[in-house]
């Protein structure tokens, strides 16, 4: 019988958040999708010298970043939205089907 790693992760995080396995997982993730260490150094370097300007169009230097949007998926609330959509579609179908039968 197999046990899902998700279940173990949730239970461990709740009761022993400092467990070595969790620390290893976080250390791994910190260098996986994004190098948190390098990002930290960069932000410290430019601290106090950031000019925020809202552009009306995508700037040429921003194009590579814009292309990356949606490339990496991070699980979140999306599943809940999809489940709700499934139910709402059912409601719409039920009413349209009912209307067709009445006509």
């Amino acid at each position: 019988m197999t046990v899902s790693s998700d279940l173990i992760y949730d239970v461990l995080r709740q009761h022993e958040p400092d467990h070595i396995l969790l620390r290893a997982v976080f250390a791994d993730a910190a260098t996986g999708l994004i190098d948190v260490g390098r990002l930290n150094q960069f932000l410290q370097r430019i601290c106090g010298r950031i000019r925020h300007i809202a552009l009306s169009q995508v700037s040429p230097l921003a194009v590579p970043a814009m292309l990356e949007i949606g490339r990496e998926s991070v699980p979140g609330e999306a599943s809940e939205t999809l489940l709700r959509e499934t139910v709402e579609e059912l409601i719409a179908e039920a009413f349209s089907g009912h209307a067709q039968r009445k006509a």
Binding site: V87, E88, L90, I91, E93, A94, F95, G97, H98
Partner: peptide
């Protein structure tokens, strides 16, 4: 099939 089986009074989504 889903449309044919679905009666609004018993449709799960409305309950």
């Amino acid at each position: 099939n889903a449309k044919l089986d679905l009666m609004p009074e018993s449709a799960p989504s409305l309950r």
